[in-house]
């Protein structure tokens, strides 16, 4: 059986909120290392990869591998019933028909119990190769969100170029063009504002802004976002969570000119 208690229901709410517009029906794969999810969007252009490690829960118990097939719209409806300060416990039997969600108030004696019917989801898992990325950029998540939202007003696509000069986000549209360049930057008082650029080779790739704006819905999960780029491979957008957990998005580049 699965029993996973999360001190902050809000964390799970935010994760589901961040991915629910990209993927609809997902398997939450539970085993003794934690709860993982991998799902592609309908167009097979973007992929979500979530890992909530067992250390993120207290206690965490999962005796055998269980795949919980859940519709995220249904899950969102139930998670709305949790207060943000509630403690969330996920429970399931070994061959479950339902997943149970228990919300406990830390301050009062309220206990709310919900269940969601599970779905049989035949989802193929993709092997994501280990990649030595040509450029890795860590920057404030809010800054990345701002850039994507600003540029989508002008164009469908953004080129991300990383060179010795820094990282340049540029777009061209019908009304004109836009570009934002960031250089490495260290803020001693506010390290969450740092921009760190590690580059082993110059990279230049073009991506659909629609997907990037969608990924940025995860901005509330982490102060910083990490972008990993190599020429001609999918972009990795990573939001780190406490206890070595993470929410990652992969996006296939646009090809040709």
């Amino acid at each position: 059986m699965l029993e996973a208690r999360l001190e902050q229901a809000n964390l799970f709410k935010k994760v589901v909120d961040a991915i629910k517009d990209l993927v609809q029906d997902c398997n939450f794969d539970c085993n003794d290392s934690g709860i993982a999810l991998q799902a592609m969007d309908n167009s097979h252009v973007a992929l979500v990869s979530m890992m909530l490690r067992s250390e993120s829960f207290a206690p965490f118990r999962c005796d055998r591998n269980i795949a919980l097939g859940i519709n995220l719209t249904s899950l969102t409806k139930v998670l709305k019933c949790a207060q943000s300060d509630d403690i969330l416990t996920l429970k399931a039997e070994d061959a479950p028909d339902v997943v149970e969600l228990v919300f406990e108030s830390a301050e009062s004696d309220r206990i709310s119990e919900y269940s969601i019917k599970l779905m049989d989801i035949d989802q193929e898992h993709l092997g994501i190769p280990e990649t030595d990325y040509g450029a890795t950029i860590s920057m404030p998540a809010a800054e990345f969100q701002r850039i994507c939202r600003d540029l989508i007003a002008l164009s469908e696509s953004v080129s991300i170029e990383c060179s010795k000069e820094g990282v340049k986000f540029a777009c061209q549209g019908d009304i004109g063009s836009g570009a934002v360049t960031l250089r490495q930057h260290t803020n001693v008082d506010k390290p969450e504002m740092n921009v760190e650029i590690n580059m082993s080779e110059p990279v230049s790739l073009t991506f659909s802004l629609k997907y990037l704006v969608n990924f940025c819905k995860a901005s509330g999960l982490s102060n910083q976002v990490r972008l990993c780029l190599s020429n001609e491979v999918p972009l990795l957008v990573e939001y780190s969570l406490a206890n070595n957990s993470h929410l990652r998005f992969y996006l296939a580049p646009k090809i040709g000119d």
């Binding site: 097979h44 252009v45 993709l126 092997g127 999918p234 296939a252 090809i255 040709g256 000119d257």
Partner: peptide, 14 residues
């Protein structure tokens, strides 16, 4: 214009 390719080109099913 540039074309949007899919992820399956890069990530193979396990």
């Amino acid at each position: 214009a540039s074309a949007q390719g899919g992820l399956m080109k890069y990530f193979a099913p396990k």
